[in-house]
Every structure is written in structure tokens, then in C-alpha cells.
């Protein structure tokens, strides 16, 4: 049984078909790469899974539940978290607050309890803090917990975004170009980091990435999108030799 299942998903914007009859099967614990040239529809797939867009046709299932057309916050509560291609942190909040915000969805206490400071709320708030510090430790950001999020260097902002996504306690994590703008050393760190959090948090990961080194290095399976359609699917070794992929995408920089 697939954990995340996309069936014949199609997304049209006016006359433009961004995603066409796309299928995806994500088994529990898998790490799958989604690649393709710019404008191939990768981020659109993320936006459909997370409820930002409602697909024109097709269905999205999470653990056999049809979540098509659910609101983004409901989908996140069900266990899908994401990062953004162009980092979207809560800029003027502190690093710690960014992670705390992402735990708000699990807060049971009502606004009244929170304002009056009734018993249940304080227990939950304390637990959230504890958990946030753990997560920040896991991404090695505990030292900057009280800094403003936008004051962090780029690489740390990327890691904070991942920590924030983890704070929602996801089953499935969608990473949108986590290595963008990183230098080779940082990229190697990131690869280790992704594999580590996958083990530690028992995650299933879908990864959009342009740096072939990352995708080929850590993904078990790769799906190649072009013009909104899957043109190839398989383990890295097979994808690297696929002629269609090479023409569509790797042709220019097969050695990247």
C-alpha cells in the first residue's frame, strides 16, 4: 500500500497544461527524486499535493484517504509538510518562534485557555518549547535560536525551513530544491542531513532538485517530468542512461 498516491493528476491554467495525467506512488520510507527542466511542472505537483492548487482532474490519496481539494492546513495536519523553493520563513520572528509556529497545529488548548494561562496550555507550551529546541539541535541551529530568522545565512535558513517542516510531525516531507544556492561542501552536508533526518524521523521524502549529484546520490528512485508529463521513472542508474531523459534534460549537462 502506497503512503502517498497521486492518480492521473492533471492541472490546467487556462490554456496551459502544467501537469498532465501524473501518477506517483510513494511507499513508506522511500526517498524519491522529482526532476525535470525548468517549468516542467515539479513545483506544481508539490502545490497540488499540499492543497495550494486543486487539480483540474485526478485524485491525491494519503494513506488511502482521498485528500484532493483539502485546504493546505488540513493536509499539513494529516501529515504532509513542505519547504519552499524560494525560502519562505517568518522573517521577523526568531528562529525558535519559527519552529514553535509549526507546532501550533497540534495545540489542543483554546485561545481562552492560552490567554488565561490555564493548566493545559502551560503544559503544552512547555512541551512545544522542549520539542522546538530538540529540533533546532537536530539541525544544529540551537545556538542561533533567538536570532531573527532573516538574519541567518542562506544555508542555515534552508535548514531552519526543514526544521520548521519537521515540527509539524509529518509522515511525508516534500523538499523543493533544498540544495539551491549551496556550494559543493554545503551540498555534501545537506545530503548527509537529508538521509539522517529520514532515518531519525521515519520520513518518506519527495525531493525536487536540480543538482544531479544530490538526486543521484541519495534517491532510490527518480521520476523525470517534462512538459507536465512523466517521461521516465526508475533507479538513478537507469535514469542516467535513459535516452529520453538525456535529450530532454541531461543532454546538455550529463556530467553535472
Amino acid at each position: 500500500m502506497a503512503l502517498l498516491d497521486l492518480k492521473e493528476v492533471t492541472m490546467r491554467f487556462g490554456g496551459l497544461t502544467a501537469v498532465n495525467s501524473f501518477n506517483l506512488n510513494l511507499e513508506k520510507g522511500e526517498l524519491v527524486g522529482l526532476i525535470g527542466p525548468n517549468g516542467a511542472g515539479k513545483t506544481t505537483v508539490f502545490n497540488i499535493i499540499t492543497g495550494v492548487y486543486r487539480p483540474t482532474a485526478g485524485k491525491v490519496y494519503l494513506a488511502d484517504e482521498d485528500i484532493t481539494g483539502f485546504r493546505p492546513d488540513v493536509i499539513t495536519k494529516r501529515g504532509i509538510a513542505r519547504t519552499f523553493q524560494n525560502i519562505r520563513l517568518f522573517g521577523s520572528l526568531t528562529v525558535l518562534d519559527n519552529v514553535l509556529v509549526a507546532q501550533h497545529l497540534r495545540l489542543g488548548a483554546s485561545p481562552l485557555e492560552a490567554v488565561l494561562g490555564l493548566g493545559r496550555y502551560w503544559g503544552q507550551e512547555a512541551k512545544m518549547h522542549e520539542r522546538a529546541l530538540e529540533l533546532l539541535a537536530a539541525v544544529e541551529l540551537e545556538a542561533v535560536a533567538n536570532e531573527q530568522a532573516t538574519s541567518l545565512p542562506y544555508g542555515q535558513q534552508r535548514r531552519l525551513e526543514i526544521a520548521r517542516a519537521l515540527a509539524t510531525e509529518p509522515k511525508v516531507l516534500l523538499l523543493d530544491e533544498p540544495a539551491a544556492g549551496m556550494n559543493p561542501a554545503e551540498t555534501v552536508d545537506l545530503m548527509d542531513f537529508i538521509q539522517r533526518i529520514r532515518r531519525e524521523f521515519g520520513l518518506t521524502i519527495l525531493l525536487i532538485e536540480h543538482q544531479m549529484r544530490v538526486v543521484m546520490g541519495i534517491c532510490e528512485r527518480i521520476i523525470v517530468l517534462d512538459y507536465g508529463q512523466t517521461i521516465a521513472e526508475g533507479p538513478p542508474a537507469v535514469i542516467q542512461r535513459d535516452s529520453k531523459v538525456i535529450t530532454a534534460y541531461l543532454g546538455v549537462s550529463a556530467d553535472a
Binding site: G91, L93, V101
Partner: peptide, 11 residues
């Protein structure tokens, strides 16, 4: 700060 990110964080 960011409505879309807030929504994506389950708010």
C-alpha cells in the same frame, strides 16, 4: 509574515 507559509505549517 507569510500567509502561504503559515497555511503550509498547518495554521
Amino acid at each position: 509574515e507569510d500567509e502561504i507559509a503559515a497555511e503550509a505549517m498547518g495554521i
